[in-house]
Computed example of a mutant assay.
Amino acid sequence: MARAATALACALLLAGCGSTVTGVARPLQVTDVERELVSGYFADLNEAGGQGTSEQRDLLKDTQHPDFRDEDCRLPSGTIRVQPTMSTLRLDPAWTPPGEDEHPRGVVLVVAVTLTVVQEGSEIGSQIGSQHVVLLNGKAYGFAPCVN
Rank of each mutant, 00 (worst) to 15 (best):
M1E: 11
A5I: 10
A5M: 11
A7V: 09
A9T: 10
L13A: 12
L14T: 07
L14N: 04
A15M: 11
G18Y: 09
S19A: 14
V21W: 15
T22A: 11
T22H: 10
G23I: 05
V24C: 12
A25Y: 02
A25R: 03
Q29W: 00
V30W: 01
V30M: 04
T31N: 07
V33R: 04
E34F: 01
E34R: 00
E36H: 05
L37R: 08
L37N: 06
G40V: 00
A43H: 04
G49K: 01
G49I: 05
G50N: 14
G50S: 14
Q51P: 00
G52L: 02
E55Y: 08
R57I: 11
D62A: 15
P66C: 04
F68V: 08
F68C: 09
F68G: 07
F68R: 06
L75C: 10
L75G: 01
S77A: 14
T79L: 07
T79D: 14
R81I: 10
Q83D: 12
P84H: 08
T85S: 14
M86Q: 10
M86H: 06
S87V: 10
L89A: 08
R90E: 05
R90P: 00
L91E: 07
P93A: 11
A94W: 05
W95G: 03
G99M: 05
E100S: 13
E100I: 04
G106T: 05
V107H: 07
V108K: 11
V108R: 12
V110Q: 09
V110E: 09
A112R: 07
A112H: 04
T116R: 10
V117W: 15
V118G: 02
G121C: 10
S122M: 13
S122L: 12
E123F: 00
E123K: 01
E123L: 04
G125K: 02
I128V: 15
Q131Y: 03
H132I: 08
H132N: 06
L135S: 06
L136T: 07
L136M: 09
N137C: 00
G138W: 01
G138S: 08
K139I: 06
K139V: 15
G142Q: 08
G142T: 09
F143V: 05
A144E: 04
C146E: 01
N148K: 12
